[in-house]
Design a protein around this nucleic acid. Structure first.
Lengths: 248, 248
DNA sequence: CGTGTTCTTGATGATCATCAAAGGTGGTGG
DNA sequence: CCACCACCTTTGATGATCATCAAGAACACG
């Protein structure tokens, strides 16, 4: 008997919004969130679950876009490489996010895990078939794309018009927001990215990011109880910095 | 007799890729590009054509998202306002582009015309009905969204990791690229945006943009035969600047 | 022709990058 | 279990890039 059958049956039965899904995610987020039982069953039949180690490259910029991933557990960064070797981080992705959907047949950026991760992937051409059969899936993809676009535009404002301190503050707040979306409990956030990653995200150098974080720490605005963890002690101050920032 | 009938009949007959469409665009681009005759007929029945003057605000950030627009003729800028009044230009939009599709019920940014313009708009709830009836439309919207996302990511690289000169060069090249997409003929490009607009797009000040453009002019890389016009005389040099730029 | 807006150009200085080096941290293998 | 090594982080000193302030020139509009 196919080991998937049990989990599929489970999925078909437990399908409330954000419910647990045995095969595709700890909660039904990712692609599958709004699907009805029959559709989900079908989608899961085409999907493949996997565990990968920290630093694994899911795909490289320019690779053939063979799969769409949904991150079940863990964190990843999306990056574009410049001609001279420096990189721009386009964004970070967390549990429940979908990665690698493209219009063209090549990935326009790279995706690398920052932590070990669980994920679920589906072949691009299988997905195309599913999209044809289930318009709800296409709608879901459109919603996700619109959200990503909004987040990227927000990031453009941050990088284009804010001071170094305001950028770091905005980053910390976005971490907290991402935690909230994942129903994260507790005040301490995971921050698995290095200062270099953060710098490449914010258009700064790692030295500036480091200096800014220690400044925040000294002001009592944040706390770093362990490596890869932060707590925002004074979110209001961070927000104010973000808003008032006289950048240019 | 409804004056639309004639144009609709025309549209139904002439429907090759990029063909002329009497009601919705000088060419069938925008939303309607990949639609078959019956669908197009239906969509056009729900749409409304209009001419607007330079500087007209199509909508403001935070407004109720009542319409989706496709720009038939002219240029617009999309902007987000910061708390202190400065603005970030998220992008420029040209003939054939679609504006104002959102996941939420409010526009997340403002749209203002830089030139007088012709456009075609459709009510949001009518569009929703059409999307339900015609999956091809939803697919089209998804493709457009993916393209916008890619463009915004590219802009993030420009603003985050390039020098002032490289940013201006990238902007000029993107203008040329946009011209190409619209089958623009001739070497001289329209550039209806002010130095201030360009600065707000690139995360610079208008003075820096001005200085950089005069520098390019003095090097013989560009020419401005009239206000609101540019010609790229040495695109290769601009590309090199864009690539080699040691920014941070 | 006058007025408001946009553009250009200059002088000055702040922010943040660059270069440099030392202190931590985690991981690996002996 | 400890020691070593690679990588990440912190902190300092210096300077370049680009913002800011300022004023005049060119242009568009009524």
């Amino acid at each position: 008997m196919n080991p998937l059958d049990a989990t599929r049956r489970m999925a078909r039965e437990a399908l409330g919004e954000g419910e647990i899904c045995g095969t595709c995610g700890s909660r039904v987020t990712g692609l599958c969130r709004p699907l009805d039982a029959a559709t989900l069953d079908d989608v899961l039949g085409e999907a493949e679950r996997m565990s990968l180690a920290q630093r694994h490259m899911l795909f490289h910029e320019g690779d053939k876009a063979g799969h769409i991933f949904t991150l079940v557990q863990g964190t990843a960064k999306l990056t574009r490489l410049m001609a001279d070797g420096r990189e721009q981080v386009l964004g970070f992705r967390f549990a429940g996010d979908v990665l690698g959907y493209t219009g063209s047949d090549r990935y326009p950026f790279s995706a690398q895990l920052l932590t070990s991760a669980e994920l679920c992937r589906i072949e691009r051409k299988r997905l195309d078939g599913l999209l044809r059969r289930y318009p709800a899936l296409e709608r879901r993809l459109l919603d996700l794309c619109v959200q990503e676009l909004a987040a990227t535009q927000e990031q453009l404002v941050t990088v284009g018009r804010r001071t170094a301190e305001a950028r770091v503050a905005a980053f910390l707040l976005s971490l907290a927001e991402a935690g909230r979306r994942r129903h994260h409990v507790g005040a301490v956030l995971d921050m698995p990215m290095t200062r270099g990653d953060i710098a490449d995200f914010l258009g700064l150098t790692l030295e500036t990011v480091s200096r800014t974080l220690t400044a925040f720490r000294r002001r009592g605005w944040i706390r770093e109880p362990a490596h890869g963890r932060v707590e925002l002690l004074k979110p209001a101050e961070l927000v104010e910095l973000t808003e008032g920032g006289s950048a240019l």
